[in-house]
Computed example of a mutant assay.
Amino acid sequence: MSRPRLPQTPAWWFDGSPPPAWTRVLAPLYGAAIAIRRAAYARGLLRRRHPGVPVVVVGNLVAGGSGKTPLVLAVVAHLQAAGWTPGVASRGYGRAEPATPRWVEPGMPAALCGDEPLLIAHATGAPVRVDRDRAAAAAALAAAGCDIVVCDDGLQHYRLARDVEVEVQDRRRRYGNGLLLPAGPLREPLERAADCALRVMNLGVAEAADDPACAGEWPMRLRVEAAQPLLGGRPLPLSAFAGQRVHAVAGIGEPERFFATLRDAGIAVVPHAFPDHHAYAAEDFAFGSPLPVLMTEKDAVKCMAFAQPGWHSVPVRACLPEGFWQALAARLPARGA
């Protein structure tokens, strides 16, 4: 079921202002459609499909960015280190020909597969399959030799049967005004969170490492890594840009978070915010001054074809306590079982 799509994150979702009347009319209708669909799967009227290997779904209840991609990267890396052969299933939001399933190859145009799947393939080396039917994507990954599937942003894709659900929540935004789309940011009612075996609270980069999450939530902190030149060469720590002015580029759910990270490193930011999933062209970078360019890793994979000297990607990696990984392992079968 498609959900209402709005061009930008509406201010009323998070700033406490009252939602427009039209959204309050539509929200109950959206909620009723969700309830009917969930009931159809619960009663077997709609059939779930399982690929025959364990499935870990990472998602959220809130529309927009919450830290899903860094967590998916961390989960895939952890599984690889533990001896699994994970594959990643994704819808590939915003890609051309969305009805066509595709294998994602590092270096392919993001327009064909979506920016987040391309980033995951580039960063992990794991097989990535994009398909609006995530159950079909998982089956293809299993047939290709993957012994576990990580589904990126799949909480609401009930057709895919899963073994573990992980909900990610942004600490600052949480559930916004607590209302369903389009009156609020919720894709599903709040009580849906109780179904998730593991719940992760994204503390971001600037939060203290020991900043506690709420009861029942695992804290996730993002670690900024060295800036990677898009044209190749030696990575540079962010401290190398301290005291300099740079053009900062972010086409993500919350661009200000990236800009704040750079400012916290002592960098004078000239911000350039683009819409989430923006399809970049060279002319987007006609800034008029020859400053270094720092961008998110998600943006960088879309700019390789026209990258210039002085352009850098700033990767972030998720850090979670050991207890989280133990809790995840406890919910998975033994490898090879």
Score class of each variant (00 low, 15 high):
A139L: 15
A329V: 05
A213L: 11
K302G: 09
D115I: 00
F285L: 12
H157I: 01
T296Q: 09
R24Y: 10
F259C: 03
E225H: 07
W103V: 00
R223S: 10
A81E: 15
L179K: 01
T23A: 11
Y280R: 08
P189V: 06
L71T: 13
Q156V: 02
A135Q: 01
V314A: 11
G59F: 06
A226P: 00
P255E: 06
E322I: 10
A268G: 13
A99S: 02
P20R: 00
P229R: 07
V57G: 09
F274Y: 11
A281W: 11
P275G: 10
S289E: 15
L29K: 01
A11R: 03
W13R: 00
R5Q: 14
G44H: 09
G251N: 07
V62A: 08
Q244S: 09
L45P: 12
A250S: 02
A197E: 10
P275W: 06
Y41E: 02
V57Y: 13
G31P: 12
F285Y: 08
A197Q: 13
G92V: 01
G52E: 06
A121T: 04
G107A: 06
H272K: 07
V166R: 08
A11G: 02
S2W: 14
D299E: 06
I36M: 15
D284A: 06
R5K: 12
G65T: 05
V270R: 15
E254D: 15
A74M: 05
M304Q: 15
W103T: 01
L26P: 00
L180N: 09
H277S: 01
C214F: 13
H247N: 06
V57I: 13
C113Y: 05
Y158T: 13
S66T: 15
A39E: 15
P315W: 00
A77L: 07
W325L: 00
V62N: 10
P237N: 00
G176K: 02
R221I: 08
